[in-house]
Amino acid sequence: MPLTTLAKGEGAQFRLDGELTIFHAASLKDALIAALGEGGPALTIDLSGVDELDTAGVQLLLLVKREAARLGRALIYSGHSAAVISVLELLDLAGTLGDPLLIPNASR
């Protein structure tokens, strides 16, 4: 199961790992919606472990974000991995998602 719960209740934290693609989209969708349900007013999903992201994955990120807003929860994606960043850049979605991105310094 790629979605791991790191902390519950207020300031709940989750973590996604591995492939965020069509192959896991169905199960991930349910897991993520469920996570929204059990989390408090603010929650964070750590994306640093995501090593692959496709259109289905992007849709999920957007969907969960929108759903959180509908439920009045503050959802933050954090620790974007390189794979995530490259897709968000390609689709110019960073602004739509609205999470602070940590751009890794290429020179180091």
Binding site: I22, A25, A26, L28, T55, A56, V58, Q59
Partner: peptide, 8 residues
């Protein structure tokens, strides 16, 4: 929402 359909 069907997670396997493309909506974008």
């Amino acid at each position: 929402m069907d997670p396997e359909a493309c909506y974008l």
